[in-house]
Simulated assay, not measured.
Amino acid sequence: MAQKTVLIVYAHQSPGSFNAAARDAAVEVLEDQGHKVLVSDLYAMNFSANSTRDDIVGELKNPELFQYGEETMHAWMEGRLSQDIIDEQRKINEAELIIFQFPLYWFSFPAIMKGWLDRVLTQGFAFSLQKMYNHGIFKEKKAMLSFSTGATQTMFRPDGINGDMNVALWPLQNGILHFCGFQVLAPQIFWCPAHSPAAVRAAMLVGWRARLRGLLAEKPLTFAPCELFDLSFQGGFLLRPEVREECSSQRHGITTGHHLGKPLPPNNQTDAEPENDQSASED
């Protein structure tokens, strides 16, 4: 396999954490395969999670009403973003794959990682209304989530107290990664390592190492393409009527987000090749 560049965006406070071990495993396996690995250790970098005026160098376009998205878009176009944002955007441009390694906090990213996404994925650089989803700017790149949970796997089943993990992952994988065009690989979920025996944690890392050896050749998750929608403000960016009619006779909705009042597609957010049996969504 030709050498690729992989960026690991890592967020954990402790070098002795399970997430640190997962990061180190990824670096080791990928480098052993001849790939270049970049690591953004957000806590070690003291990366700012705050989206502020300080992210723009020079004068504002509209100083009377500060609009962060508009101002950072213009600053990106004119090379006036703060240096820490520029440095991370350069890493994204270089990488063919981005792995986000983190503990799941409140069904989402840690604040420092969410701040990285808010600040680094600026409009123009990462997305536009003309370049989004399967037509997105990063459609030639891959990205994935690799994270630990504090809850057990059964708690994230459709009949578990936390609800279906496919639903929890939808805004992260579709609303952020796929929106920017990334081909999203199935997530690597480490279920409850903090409350698992040492042998179980070791087995999790063995499985992760095995997956890493073929990671770059994996098939990405499937999302609804833009072509299914009326991409105009007049049409409301809604599903085309003929598509909705075609879906009316099908058992499942199109995706977790476009369920159309039907059962969720099995493993829509957790498995690139879902089973036909709806019970498979428990995995």
Rank of each mutant, 00 (worst) to 15 (best):
W106M: 11
F107R: 00
F107S: 05
F109L: 15
P110K: 12
P110D: 11
A111Y: 07
A111C: 02
A111F: 02
I112D: 04
I112P: 01
M113Y: 04
M113E: 14
M113R: 03
M113N: 05
M113Q: 15
K114D: 06
K114H: 08
D118H: 07
R119F: 09
R119V: 08
R119N: 03
R119Q: 05
R119E: 10
V120G: 01
V120E: 04
V120T: 14
L121C: 00
Q123G: 03
Q123K: 15
Q123L: 07
G124W: 11
G124Q: 10
F125G: 01
A126L: 10
A126P: 00
F127P: 00
S128M: 07
S128R: 07
L129M: 11
L129H: 03
Q130H: 08
M132G: 00
N134F: 03
N134G: 01
N134D: 15
I137D: 01
I137H: 08
I137S: 01
F138K: 02
F138C: 02
F138L: 01
E140S: 13
E140P: 00
E140N: 13
K142Q: 15
K142T: 10
A143W: 09
M144N: 02
M144W: 06
L145T: 03
S146A: 12
S146L: 02
S146N: 07
S148P: 03
G150W: 13
G150I: 07
G150E: 12
A151W: 07
A151G: 05
A151H: 10
Q153A: 13
Q153I: 04
T154V: 09
M155K: 09
F156K: 05
R157N: 05
P158T: 14
P158Y: 14
P158C: 12
D159I: 09
G160W: 15
I161Q: 10
N162Q: 14
G163F: 13
D164K: 05
M165K: 04
N166V: 11
N166M: 12
L169F: 13
W170M: 13
P171W: 11
L172K: 04
L172R: 03
N174Q: 14
N174C: 07
N174D: 14
G175P: 01
I176P: 00
H178L: 06
H178P: 00
F179G: 01
F182S: 03
F182M: 04
Q183P: 00
Q183D: 06
Q183S: 03
V184L: 04
V184R: 02
L185I: 06
